[in-house]
Design a protein around this nucleic acid. Structure first.
Lengths: 213, 213
DNA sequence: GGGCCACTTGATTGGTCAATCAAGTAACCG
DNA sequence: CGGTTACTTGATTGACCAATCAAGTGGCCC
């Protein structure tokens, strides 16, 4: 292999990113050794440092990868199955519930985990984490706006907070019960919030990409 | 010093626990070296291993310390300043806001941080984390029950989730804005939830310790 | 076909980690 | 006063860590 990047399986760089993505999600950043990443990717350290200047640079790439993947991998599939804007919001939360269930309540949102673990001084990483949160909130805010609720940006921030905090509690208790309690309360909350009285600031009020028809 | 444990400042064990409590909060568990703890406590490794069998055992002790401290250090002071049960709930959230503000939005809830960082297989630690969450939720649920709202345990779980998720977002954005957005939405949520129709399961309905007027 | 360059190999480096250990010090008890 | 016990000291151990490096390998272009 050489020159311009070759096919799929032997694409070492992509394998490294994918291995790191998985391991940072499963064990966190500090608890993942470079050797773990190398073993999982089937590469060795020289190759690694050919593509990345440091473990930290790899983290930044992983976070960028998440930001690119959130629309096609998370938002779009949920949107496709939603009939109303608020269906979409609840569908997002249900999709995290599935992930929790699949992992016996041990792993939840990879971004949330890194948000609390990564040193606060690491601004490049936290900017990327914030960008991921913004993408998530942007999609929820659009749906909330389309549903005609007041303060869609606040609502989106709130819903994201609930999801992250619910995942955290379910991990600690190793049970879906806290997550399900939060799901019930989000439903109650959305059902009781006021509708916006005037056109909201960001969107023109006519239907947007979230959940046509 | 010897024999039965001596005075306060030279109590090595207590200094070790306090140093660890601070450092686990500031940097997390994996990112805190034993040498950092020893330096901060003014002890050396032999002393450490006289009192604790491992770094992991120290973590368990720190978590137990938090569980003992939550009532006198967090809940009681907030309760003392609250005039109504829901005042108490919002006061709790405001106290976390203060901590966030004091640290330039970098450090929030020490338990939440550990909940996501500590390996899921470490059951003794996660049991203690869950116990801390339960103490927090117990106090909130009592207040919610006293306020006469439906499903107090669900509401408490929900409020804790919001707090943890809001702290997380404020850390990522290095801004109080996400936290404040969540505060507004919690207020709106609590104002619109239905009252319980019948006496609730756990409490006898007459006023409890939370916020006598 | 010769040289260049992208990429790989894996041993190695220096540092830090949690944990161990043998040797000490001093308070209390008999 | 001599022994026991609680605690301290700090050097040491071996494992592991991220990062470096010199020596390759092989496809592509001139």
């Amino acid at each position: 292999m050489a020159r311009t990047a070759p096919a799929d399986p032997p694409d070492t760089r992509a394998r490294l990113v994918e291995a790191a993505r998985y391991l940072f999600w499963e064990r966190g950043f500090a608890n993942t050794g470079l050797s773990d990443i190398l073993a999982r990717a089937g590469a060795n350290s020289g190759s690694f440092y050919h593509f990345f200047e440091s473990k930290d640079a790899l983290l930044r790439t992983v976070l960028d990868t998440y930001a690119e993947a959130i629309e096609p991998m998370l938002l779009a599939p949920v949107r496709a199955e939603s009939r109303t804007p608020l269906d979409f919001v609840m569908g997002l939360l249900v999709s995290y519930r599935g992930r929790l269930q699949d992992t016996d309540c041990t792993y939840g949102c990879p971004i949330g985990r890194l948000a609390l673990e990564i040193d606060a001084e690491n601004m490049p990483a936290h900017e990327r984490i914030a960008r991921n949160f913004d993408a998530w909130k942007g999609a929820v805010a659009a749906a909330v706006r389309e549903a005609g609720l007041a303060r869609p940006d606040d609502v989106a921030t709130f819903v994201l907070a609930v999801m992250e905090g619910a995942v955290m509690q379910s991990r600690a208790h190793r049970s879906l019960a806290p997550y399900d309690a939060c799901l019930r309360q989000v439903t109650a909350y959305l059902a009781t919030q006021p509708r916006a009285r005037t056109a909201r600031k960001t969107a023109p009020r006519c239907s947007r990409k979230g959940s046509r028809r």
